[in-house]
């Protein structure tokens, strides 16, 4: 059975996941593929960041409790059928906004060409949103 994990911009199909209620347990390689967080001796690590794992997050088979880890990080987890979505931490988002620095993003235009907000540094930018009507 395949489970789909939505994490940041990643959509990853993983095999061999185990579900217990609201908890999704992933093998370490699946965890790394789905989230970028690798299980190392010192904890779950991504880039320079390491989070010490709680003893209850890793079971006897070495599976990692993604729900417990995400909850610890302040990230909401919702699931429906085989699809699991992990959201962003409100605290991280608020800290970013409080810098008053405009968060960067990259999106395609109608021709599929990618534009980054930071490409326009040095100019004033009026960023506006609209809907399809």
């Amino acid at each position: 059975m395949t489970t789909t994990v939505l994490y940041d911009d990643r959509v990853t199909a993983v095999a061999g996941a185990r579900v217990a209620g609201d908890h999704l347990w992933l093998a370490p390689d699946a965890m790394a593929a789905a989230t970028g967080w690798k299980l190392e001796p010192q904890g779950l690590c991504r880039g320079d960041a390491c989070v010490r794992t709680d003893a209850t997050w890793v079971d006897a088979d070495g599976h990692v409790d993604l729900t417990a880890f995400a909850t610890h990080m302040g990230q909401p987890v919702v699931h429906d059928g085989d699809a699991w979505a992990v959201g962003e931490s409100a605290g991280v988002r608020r800290d970013a906004l409080l810098s008053t620095q405009a968060p960067d993003f990259e999106l395609p235009d109608l021709d599929g060409k990618l534009h980054k907000l930071s490409d326009y540094r040095g100019k004033k930018v009026y960023l506006y949103s609209w809907g399809s009507y």
Binding site: T100, Q101, L117, K124, Y126, L127, Y128, S129, W130
Partner: peptide, 16 residues
């Protein structure tokens, strides 16, 4: 942004 149309002004230094 909770609706459309909404606008944000960003200066030359990338500050809102």
């Amino acid at each position: 942004m909770v609706n459309v149309p909404q606008g944000v002004w960003i200066d030359e230094q990338g500050r809102i």
